[in-house]
Amino acid sequence: MLVVKSKHELVSTLKRLKTGSKTLGFTPTMGALHLGHESLIRQSKKDNDISVVSIFVNPTQFLPHEDLSKYPRPIESDLKICESLGVDVVFLPSVEEMYEKDSIKVSAPKFMGYVFEGFLRPGHFDGVLSIVLKFFNLVLPTNAYFGKKDAQQLLMIEKMVKDLNLSINVVGMPLIRDKDNLAFSSRNVYLSNEGRKKALCLSSALFSIEDKIKNGIKDVSLLKKEALKSLWDVEVEYFEFVDRELHITTKLEDSILIAVIRVENIRLLDNLWISDIVHEGKCI
């Protein structure tokens, strides 16, 4: 496994490795790798001749009051995980390597980028899209892998690839849960044991909705109302069925239930992709 830290070295390394018509899979991460990240990397290894992982805590997607300085950075552990999974190249740049002074940035869509996460964290998706585009231009992947847990992020990256005519296949991978059904997140380490137990009400609410859908219930307002009853003891920032353009919808088919709760002042994302339930033959 090669670990490179400069853009020049990355480009020259990949040019050498891609001799011939080899496919390249790319998994961008902010490190603190968990089983969710591992699922993306494993799929990248399975699908492609070359597998690249970036580890970079991107400052432009954090708001001034957020936890940039406290964000976990277990670099040695992350590198061991990448090596054990057979990653070919890890890109480990500095902030100065990725951002020039007075750097040009991508603007998120005026609607999709400023609802839900974008409303609560204005400018967040400008930073996300800017760094992802920078990585895409350096790596030039055949396939790029992102988790479905960050649904709004995934939908906008898909839109960016389409709008900017990028020849990249974006692969959305299923959300991965821990043994207690809490969705894997790098921020889960901040939760106390009691907080973690409290947070499980969110996955429980989503599973309840999934069961009702399997039993033929299609009324979105009813599904939402019943689920919210189990979230009385946590702060709910949003809990909505949306379409792929992030408009709130009353149409169940092909919708996505996106949700964020706050426990011990930690924001926890989770969701339910209704299309996945349908495609797996689990409902109506």
Rank of each mutant, 00 (worst) to 15 (best):
Ile75Gly: 08
Thr60Lys: 12
Ser130Ala: 12
Ile157Val: 15
Val132Cys: 09
Asn271Thr: 00
Gly31Thr: 02
Lys134Phe: 14
Leu200Asn: 06
Cys283Gly: 15
Leu133Trp: 13
Asp102Thr: 11
Ala108Pro: 10
Glu117His: 02
Phe136Arg: 09
Ser51Tyr: 04
Ile81Glu: 10
Lys5Trp: 15
Val189Trp: 13
Glu76Ser: 05
Ser51Phe: 04
Leu166Thr: 13
Glu226Pro: 06
Glu240His: 10
Leu2Val: 11
Ile209Leu: 07
Val220Ile: 08
Tyr114Ser: 15
Ile284Met: 09
Phe241Ser: 05
Pro109Trp: 03
Leu33Pro: 06
Pro174Arg: 02
Tyr114Val: 12
Phe111Gly: 08
Asp180Pro: 11
Glu117Ala: 03
Glu245Gln: 06
Lys22Leu: 15
Asn58Cys: 03
Ser203Gln: 13
Glu237Thr: 02
Ser192Asn: 03
Leu79Arg: 05
Ser21Met: 05
Ile284Val: 08
Ile176His: 04
Ser44Pro: 03
Val3Phe: 09
Ile131His: 07
Lys80Glu: 15
Phe91Glu: 13
Met98Lys: 06
Val263Leu: 05
Asp243Thr: 04
Val11Ser: 04
Gln43Ala: 14
Glu235Trp: 00
Ser255Phe: 07
Asp163Thr: 13
Ala32Asp: 09
Lys197Ile: 13
Val234Asp: 02
Phe136Tyr: 12
Gly86Glu: 12
Leu269Pro: 00
Ser54Thr: 06
Leu92Thr: 11
Pro174Leu: 00
Val89Thr: 10
Leu166Phe: 12
Leu129Ile: 08
Ser167Asn: 07
Val170Ile: 13
His37Arg: 09
Ser69His: 12
Pro122Met: 08
Asn169Ala: 15
Arg244Val: 13
Ser208Ile: 00
Glu237Tyr: 05
Ala227Ser: 07
His34Ile: 15
Ala144Asp: 09
Glu237Pro: 06
Leu92Glu: 12
Val263His: 06
Val220Trp: 07
